[in-house]
Design a protein around this nucleic acid. Structure first.
Length: 350
DNA sequence: AACCCGGGGTG
DNA sequence: CACCCAGGGTT
């Protein structure tokens, strides 16, 4: 039996049951694909369920505010996915009568839909013979054919894509694409794949050569940057505090946070002299207390954030600028915030 | 081509 | 601690 048929046979016997596998409607398929980018099924599934419940159709999602979408997305990470999801929902609802594009080429034009996602939707919903090449596919192909080309090099991307086109079942692209991904997720796992019960073990080149654990090859490891965050949690007698929305190009774009002083070092002695503090507090009627004795370390893929939380009790008034919002502390959970701050809020505003 | 973007799970 | 995850966008 040929490669694709073996995979499909394995898939039909071993596939997990998932809500988005019950339909060919592009809306839930698209939604699930965006949520599952760089995200495991176990982590993304509860988010998928709440999105489908809150926004059963693309029109419901289009009608929502960006803040509502970000709030539902809170904790899932890579927040540009949520913003692009919303942009595309509005585009499909307003300009396309709620009808998603039906070809790989046209799907690619949607914000947040790249080569992988366009291929997934086109093949699953419309049976277009375009191969998905995700992390699972790179792993399965590099092992089965013992290919050592780095999967994140330009040449590697072309090589694996060409191989994927050649291998795919052109008569059943929907099952084939899901089969090879499911196979990579469950059988040909990154660590400790169970090669002894693998349906492809007789013809797997990496297994023959003892290379399974070394493949796929990936170039460079990322360097982690250290940053030092000092959050100011103002707290007045009538339970007001200040938050502001992150803008620009950095992390957590669109999410809210407390007034932030970032420093180059672990240093913590200049808070009350800093312009951000002085802009809010004009007199000496305050008490400032670090909430933890040690910084909270929050680890992102490319950054480690050493974070201090300063609780500042104010007797008088607090002043906000244009970028800040004065809110009642009981409303704090209405705003989308990073997990780092969500954790603090759960402890401090309990 | 290089860099940026989260949070959680695994060994 | 290193690595990975149903990747995509920007420069």
């Amino acid at each position: 039996m040929i490669f694709s048929k073996k995979l499909i046979t394995w898939y039909l016997q071993n596939k997990r049951s998932m809500p988005w596998r019950e339909t060919n409607n592009p809306y839930p398929i698209w939604l699930s694909e965006i949520i599952l980018q760089q995200t495991k099924v176990a982590q993304g599934l509860p988010y998928y369920m709440s999105f489908i419940e809150a926004f059963p159709t693309v029109f419901d999602l289009a009608k929502a505010s960006e803040e509502e979408v970000l709030k539902l997305w809170q904790g899932l990470g890579y927040y540009s996915r949520a913003r692009n999801l919303h942009v595309t929902a509005k585009h499909v609802a307003d300009n396309l009568n709620g009808v998603f594009p039906v070809t790989y080429k046209d799907l690619l034009l949607l914000k947040g839909v790249g080569d992988y996602t366009a291929s997934a939707i086109a093949s699953i919903c419309y049976k277009e013979a375009v191969p998905v090449v995700d992390g699972n596919v790179y792993r399965v192909l590099s092992r089965y054919f013992n290919i050592e080309t780095p999967i994140n090099s330009a040449i590697g991307v072309k090589q694996f894509k060409a191989l994927a086109i050649q291998l795919m079942d052109h008569d059943d692209p929907a099952d084939y694409n899901q089969a090879i991904m499911e196979f990579g997720a469950l059988q040909c796992r990154p660590k400790k794949p169970d090669c002894f019960i693998c349906p492809l073990c007789d013809s797997c080149e990496a297994l023959k050569k003892g290379n399974v654990e070394r493949l796929p090859v990936k170039l460079k490891k990322i360097k982690v940057k250290k940053r030092y965050f000092n959050y100011l949690i103002f707290y007045t007698k009538n339970h007001q505090t200040i938050i502001s929305q992150r803008i620009g190009n950095g992390i957590w774009q669109g999410l809210y946070e407390f007034p932030l002083i970032e420093s180059d070092t672990i240093n913590k002695d200049t808070i009350v002299d800093h312009p951000v503090f002085k802009q809010v507090v004009e007199n000496d009627e305050y008490e400032i207390v670090p909430y933890y004795s040690e910084p909270v370390v929050h680890k992102l893929s490319h950054q480690h954030l050493y974070t201090r939380f300063y609780v500042i009790k104010i007797d008088g008034l607090i002043k906000t600028n244009e970028t800040q919002k004065k809110i009642n502390t009981k409303d704090i959970r209405k705003y989308p915030v990073p997990i780092l701050l969500s954790n603090f809020i759960d402890v401090f505003f309990k």
